[in-house]
Amino acid sequence: MRRTLIVGAGLTGAVLAREIAERLDERVVVIDRREHIGGNTFDGPNGHGVVVHHYGPHIFHTNAPQVANYLSRYTDWRSYEHRVVAWFDDRWVPLPFNMTAMEIVFGETEGRRLNAVLAGEYGLGVKVPILKMRQSGSADVRRVADLVYEKVFLHYTMKQWGVAPDALDPSVSARVPVFLSRDDRYFQDTFQAMPRDGYAALVARMLDDPRIELRCGQSFEDVDGVERFDRVVFTGAIDEFFDHVHGPLPYRSIRFDMVTTESGHTIQRAAQQNFPTPAAQHAFTRSTEFRQLTGQGDIGHTTLAFEYPEDYVPGRNEPYYPIPHEDSRRIYRRYAAEAAKLGTVFFAGRLADYSYYNMDQAVARALACFEKEIAPRRPASAGREASA
C-alpha cells in the first residue's frame, strides 16, 4: 500500500490526510513538531476551565457551501455571528466602520447627512476601501475617509505590521473599508458558525481513520526513511523546506497575553475589541473574550487574550502572517519555482503558499490540492525530492 508523509497537523494537513486515506485507500503518516493537533486552531480549556484558542481567535465563516458541507462531516455547529467594536476617540464604534458608526462619531444629524452623501456616490450595502474614498472628488467623502484612515487604519496597521501603510500591498487597506449599511456583523458570509466541540475535536475526527498514523512532537528533519514514502505533503514554511537558499521569507508574529478574571458573566462590549490607537496609548491591537466566541456558560471565570504583534524570530515565536508586499512575493516566487521541480512533494497551506488564508480558504486549498495535484497522479517514490 502506498504511503504519504504529511508535515503539519493543522486544517490543511488534516484535510489532505483524510482525503488521501479515504479516497485513495493509502497509508498516511501525519507529523507535527508541536505536541498537539489543529495547528493554530488548537483550542481547549485553560487552568480555570475556560475554553480558549491558544493561538488567537478563530472564527469560521464562508461563502463556499462545499467547504461548510465538508467540515460538517466532522462537527456539529453552534450558530455564531462575530461582532467587533473599536476604541475611537474615547468611545466604542462598530467595525467595519458603518452608518451607525458615522452617526456616533459625527453626531446624528451630520452623520445622517454624510451617510446620504456616501450612499449617493457608492450605493447602499457596499464596502468601500478607504483609499478609494480618499480619491473621491467630494470633500465630504474625503473628510470621512481621512478620519477613518487615521483613527481606524493608520495606527492599527503600524502596530500590526511594524511598517507604515504605504509599504504594504493595497490589499491590506481593503480589509478596513467603510460599510454603507447598518449591519454590525464583522462578516457577511452566508455561513457563520463555530464548531460545537471546538476545532481540536474537529481535526481529531478528521484524523480518526485506521489508515492515518499521527506523530506529534516530531519535526520533518527528524523523520527517518523519508525516501520510503511515495509522496510528501509539506504545509510548513516553504523557505524552511529549502533551507532558506533564497533567503528567509518575512513574517509577523504575535504575543498573546491571556488574562483571566473571576466573573460569572462576560465583560467585553463585544467578543473582539480593537484598539486602533497609537502604540504609546495601547501597545496591543485587540482583545478577545473567548466565552463570547465559544458560548461557554458561567464557570466563574472569563479569559481575554490581548494581542501584541512583533517581528518573527525563528526559534522564539511562531510565523503567523506573511508580509504582503512585492519584495516578499518576489522571494516566494523563487521558492515556488524550486517546488515546481519536485514531482512527488506537494506544498499547501498558509506558510507553504505564503498566503494569508482564512480557515475556509485553507480547507478549499487542501481540497483543490488533492483533486488537481495529488489524485490525478500517483508517483513511484518521493525519496529523492523529499531529501532536497
Rank of each mutant, 00 (worst) to 15 (best):
P322C: 07
R185W: 01
Y199M: 00
V84R: 11
L249K: 00
T288S: 06
R350S: 11
A86C: 12
Y74E: 08
H282A: 02
S72E: 08
Y149W: 08
Q160E: 08
A200G: 10
V28H: 00
F106Q: 08
S263L: 01
G137C: 03
G38E: 08
G111I: 09
G111T: 09
I130N: 00
R27E: 14
A388E: 11
S138K: 13
W77L: 03
S387P: 00
R269T: 13
G123F: 03
A68G: 10
G198Q: 03
R316E: 07
F234S: 02
H58S: 05
R113D: 05
I331L: 15
F42C: 06
I267K: 08
Y335F: 07
P94L: 15
M158R: 14
R377E: 08
E108D: 05
P324F: 05
G300K: 02
Q66T: 10
F347K: 10
R377T: 13
A362R: 04
T12C: 14
V67S: 10
T344D: 07
G123K: 09
E385H: 13
L351C: 13
E108K: 15
V259L: 11
L24W: 01
S136I: 06
P165Q: 07
G120M: 03
Q188A: 14
Q296N: 07
H82K: 13
P45D: 10
D76G: 11
E22S: 14
T12Y: 09
P379R: 02
L154I: 14
P322D: 05
N317D: 00
A21P: 03
F241T: 03
D360T: 08
G225C: 05
Y354W: 13
P276S: 02
Q135I: 03
V7R: 13
N115A: 09
P165H: 03
Q188N: 12
H54E: 06
G349F: 06
Y55A: 05
S328T: 11
D189R: 08
R34A: 02
G49E: 11
P210V: 05
Y332G: 03
A9V: 12
L24I: 05
V363W: 04
Q292S: 04
G8C: 03
A237Y: 03
H82T: 09
A68W: 15
D239R: 10
I6Y: 05
E110C: 00
A64M: 10
H301W: 15
A21I: 07
D208S: 12
T303Y: 02
D184V: 15
R350G: 10
D239T: 07
T75P: 10
